[in-house]
Simulated scan of single mutants.
Amino acid sequence: MGVRPPQNDDDEPDTITFGIAALDAHLERADVEFPVDAETLLTQLGDPDIPYDATGSTVALSEAMDKVHIQHFDSEQELLNTLHPVFESYRERAGNSILGQLRALLPF
């Protein structure tokens, strides 16, 4: 997913990526080849912190991978489809917290 941050000027806005879109960017930079197992994937990517919401909250990829029971991925799409619900659950929990609700009210 991606969301544009609030803008204070007329310049072209940057895009904030999170969830599987952020993971996809890591995969492209590392040029990961599929099929791949979870351990090799984490080694190749260096276990990055993946933002799961537009406020910049992150989760380590290894922690997200621990939430799924699949340890081998035949394709990038299979990996992204598997991890999408994990990132969504983190996003929903953060949005439901008091801090998440306060952040949603503030314009920054």
Rank of each mutant, 00 (worst) to 15 (best):
M1I: 01
G2E: 14
V3A: 10
R4Q: 11
P5M: 12
Q7G: 02
Q7H: 07
D14C: 07
I16P: 00
I16Y: 06
F18W: 04
G19N: 02
A21C: 00
A22E: 02
H26K: 05
L27I: 11
R29T: 14
A30Y: 00
A30R: 01
E33L: 06
F34A: 04
F34Q: 01
P35G: 02
V36G: 01
D37F: 04
A38F: 01
T40K: 04
L41K: 06
L41E: 02
T43F: 12
Q44H: 07
Q44K: 10
D47P: 04
D47Q: 11
D49G: 14
P51H: 05
P51G: 06
A54K: 15
T55G: 08
V59C: 13
A60D: 15
A60F: 08
L61F: 03
S62H: 09
S62G: 12
E63Y: 08
A64L: 10
M65K: 11
K67V: 12
K67T: 10
H69V: 00
I70D: 11
I70Y: 04
I70L: 13
I70P: 01
F73L: 08
D74E: 10
S75R: 01
L79I: 05
T82Q: 06
H84M: 10
P85Q: 08
P85N: 06
Y90F: 10
R93E: 15
R93A: 12
R93N: 11
G95P: 01
N96P: 02
N96D: 10
S97F: 03
I98P: 10
